[in-house]
Amino acid sequence: MASFKGAIVVNTERCKGCGVCAANCPVGVISLAKEVNGKGYNYAYMAEPDKCIGCASCGMVCPDGVITVYKVKL
């Protein structure tokens, strides 16, 4: 079975830190940062990038469209 490796880019300045992406990540890649962005939100980031499979679930549920998803087949 083919396996995939993914990565996400979060537009941290536009992220509102709602956490919906983290709650819906099937492999627990995303966490909310301890740091805040310019609007004071704890933005989402890849806390465990090695686990990312590029499924785009996070992008799909992000209410602000701040997540861009990349994926390669290994």
Binding site: G54, M60, I67, T68, V69, Y70, K71
Partner: peptide, 11 residues
């Protein structure tokens, strides 16, 4: 991974 050819989802 983060290269245009690997893009699977964007706004």
């Amino acid at each position: 991974i983060i290269k245009p050819e690997n893009l699977v989802y964007q706004k």
